[in-house]
Structure formats: structure tokens, C-alpha cells
Simulated scan of single mutants.
Amino acid sequence: MNHDRYDDAYIRDILTTTRTIAVVGASPNATRPSHGVLGYLTASGYETYPIHPGIAGRELFGRLVYPRLADVPVPIDMVDVFRNSDAIDALADEILALPVLPKVVWLQLGIRNDAAAARLEAAGIRVVMDRCPAIERPRLLGA
């Protein structure tokens, strides 16, 4: 897939079929983008699962924080990632080791790793890079 440009229908389909989202790199710091996006996705009706080993066991937006993806007790539709591009290879390994693969891996603004994206796509996972669902959702769905 060409990750330089996404068709609106591709993004819209992801946003309308996704129900559960793990937010990797969720932060309790209100000035961090991951905090605001987690709050927006939760308020938009998605079932969110914050992932951050340093604050595991705490709550963000009423949602329990998990130390890693494998600890989330339900299958995840989408993994929304707030980690630097260099960390994506190891995260792809973690994702591919899950008993139930997510349908989508979404890398936030400024995050791109084409090699990891190719590995994820080869396993049947859709990938979005360098985009934000909190920007795309209002743009495409008006909400």
C-alpha cells in the first residue's frame, strides 16, 4: 500500500468499524497529545485501553491503564501508537505475537516505519501512518 496518501474511504471505513482501541504511549500529562487523543476517542464512544508500563494500574479517563498490549483482556480492533518511529519494529513484534491480531495499526502524526508496516500488512493488518484519528474522525464523520 502507498502510505504517502490515503483514500478517505479507507480511513472512514477504519473509523466506523473500529470499536476497541489500545492507545500505546497514553500519558497522564494533559499537555501531551496522547492524553488529548485518548480523551477524544473515549468521549467519541470507542472502548479505549491505555497502554503505558510506567503508570499501569492507574486510570485515565476512567479506563484502566495496562502495561502492555498482551495484558488487554479483550481483542483490540485498532492499536493507536504514540511512540517514535524507531520503536515501531519492536512494537510490531509485540502486535504480531498477540493471540488475536488487531485489524488496524495506526501510527500517529510524525511516526512512520515502512518496514514494520509491510510486516503488519503481510499478516493482514491494515496500517495508517503519520495521521491522527482525532483529526481524521471529525474531518470525515463530522463528529
Rank of each mutant, 00 (worst) to 15 (best):
A87H: 12
D77Q: 06
G142D: 06
L101T: 03
L96W: 01
A97N: 05
A56D: 02
R83D: 03
R119W: 07
G25R: 08
L91D: 00
A9P: 06
G124S: 09
A56C: 12
A143F: 13
L141E: 11
R12Q: 14
F61I: 00
G124C: 10
R131Q: 15
P53C: 14
G124D: 09
I55K: 13
R137Q: 14
R83G: 05
G36S: 11
I11H: 02
I135A: 09
G57T: 06
R83S: 05
P133W: 02
N113Q: 09
L120H: 04
D86I: 11
N2S: 13
R119Q: 07
D7G: 07
P138M: 01
T16R: 11
D77M: 04
L120F: 00
P67V: 11
Y66S: 01
T31C: 10
V81Q: 05
R137S: 10
S85K: 04
A92F: 00
L107P: 01
G124E: 09
N29A: 12
L107W: 05
A97I: 03
L141S: 02
C132T: 09
N29M: 04
R19F: 00
D8K: 12
V23N: 05
R139V: 11
C132M: 07
G36C: 07
L96C: 00
G25P: 04
H52V: 01
I88D: 03
A115R: 15
I51Y: 01
R32C: 04
D130K: 10
A26G: 04
N2E: 10
Y49H: 15
Y10D: 12
Y40C: 02
V65K: 07
R126Q: 14
P67C: 11
V79P: 06
I88Y: 07
F61V: 07
Y49N: 11
L98T: 08
V104Q: 01
V37H: 02
V74A: 15
G62Y: 10
Y10W: 15
G45M: 06
S44A: 15
R119K: 08
I125R: 00
L96P: 05
S34Q: 12
H52L: 09
K103Q: 15
W106L: 08
I14G: 04
V104F: 02
